[in-house]
Design a binder for these strands. Structure first.
Lengths: 174, 174
DNA sequence: TACTACGTTTAGTATTCACTAAACGTACAT
DNA sequence: ATGTACGTTTAGTGAATACTAAACGTAGTA
């Protein structure tokens, strides 16, 4: 017996919700994205309400986050007061967008604090073993963060290059 | 006036805690790692209690997660019943370990569900536009996950190659 | 002006989750 | 066996957070 499309969509949505939660996002966010991603046409807020069962309020706030990450796009129709949303289907573009967004985040402020710790030590140098050990460790972590940063920047700069190609390149490195 | 080491350590720990929280881990986990990372010698459970202010119970469970990810290592001393823990200082090795760990996670189960949805559609093919559209979308997402997967595998396989080198390689790609 | 159709904000609620305190299990020592 | 020094597990708590319901603001329409 053939499975209904509705069933497929439900399973798919379930999966995306779990993935969303796994990455620390609300699971409703995954559901919203799934609804948009599986829709051939852009959806209005109320249509998303119908699809996901969430309320307008929740969707309103969460879809703004999705838009900020570049995972969904907002559009309007002339003579129609509603907003319409559609999913970004190019995941590679989405990743780049997310990395860009992350650049000015809470994460970067925290990374900055490591840099500050290092600078503070530079200015107040004490010449004993414990001090030196601590300095080397903090420095190593800071270099690691720098590497992550330049890696993210490199990925952002890559043009029209799919993820699979990247992994192919890495595979050759040996 | 020279800043005390204790002060530096506190700031550093604060920063790592925030970073930990940012990535969806408990902030206590960041504090535990910071304590170990800044210690020249392996620490016992009770010493970590003293450093972080957390209780044994919390540390016991969270340090197991850290160990599973390869971020800390457990060791013992002969004639000493205590366990000792030290931080993995090679972050590149840690990343590889984390990627390996992720292989059998909740995330992969969710990804698997997408694969299942696709297989279900294969077996129950219906020839209309909506069906085809849905199929293509689900398929695209599945390919994306595959790409991520092979990327992770490629990174795991890389031997003795720092992150900075990887980003250098990507930078050349254009 | 009032009315309608929107999206957003807010106040309150339910649930998740990190963490504590304490009981527990275990291995070794006496 | 009794005690002691560990690590682990569990029951409970407080805080963070996702979400609901409803008030609100606003722009178009009569």
């Amino acid at each position: 017996m053939p499975q209904s499309l509705a069933r497929i969509k439900k399973d798919f949505t379930e999966g995306l919700s779990q993935i969303s939660r796994f990455w620390g996002f609300p699971k409703g966010m995954g559901a919203i994205f799934a609804a948009l991603y599986l829709s051939p046409t852009p959806l209005s807020l109320d249509e998303i309400v119908a699809e996901t069962g969430l309320t307008k309020g929740a969707i309103s706030t969460e879809i703004r986050a999705l838009a900020r990450m570049g995972l969904v796009h907002r559009s309007t129709k002339l003579g129609d007061r509603k907003d319409y949303y559609e999913a970004e289907a190019d995941f590679y573009a989405a990743i780049k967008s997310i990395l860009r967004e992350r650049q000015n985040s809470e994460f970067d402020r925290a990374v900055g604090s490591v840099k500050v710790a290092l600078a503070t030590m530079d200015e107040n140098w004490v010449d004993n073993e414990e001090w030196k050990f601590t300095y080397k460790r903090v420095q190593a972590l800071q270099e690691f963060f720098d590497a992550i940063d330049s890696l993210a920047k490199a990925v952002i700069k890559l043009e029209g290059l799919g993820l699979s190609n990247v992994s192919k390149v890495l595979g050759v490195l040996k």
